[in-house]
Amino acid sequence: MSTPLLYALTGAVLWGIGLMGLIGLRHLLRKLLALNLIGSATFLILVGLAQHHNGPDPVPQALVLTGIVVSIAATALGVVLIRRYFHLTGRTELESEVPEAGRDEEGHSG
């Protein structure tokens, strides 16, 4: 087994952990961190699998750089939204503990 392949397999494990964190955790910042973990896992697989085949491959490396910038932008936007949400409501979670009066919750949540 080559080192890049090990990276790719690690990526598979990290995807599972990240997905569990994203669904299971309630704190919004933790959800965002879980998404970042998933992002890194994806990048590991992208680079690892390609380099296992080709040796050093600049194309996936460049793709990952682009992907990192995109994920930084998304994370930063998420953090700004979370901060403002916290400022307005004092809450750090999407679902409220007690159902709000007067709001029409749909029963299922994403």
């Binding site: 994203l22 919004l28 959800k31 965002l32 998404l35 998933i38 992002g39 994806t42 998304a74 936007l77 998420g78 939204l81 979370i82 403002r84 949400y85 307005l88 409501t89 999407l94 949540s109 994403g110």
Partner: peptide, 16 residues
């Protein structure tokens, strides 16, 4: 903001 955050999290997971 809550709707936007929920949208962002779902859409990012979908993209990834």
């Amino acid at each position: 903001l809550r709707a936007a955050l929920r949208y962002l999290l779902a859409a990012l997971l979908g993209s990834l």
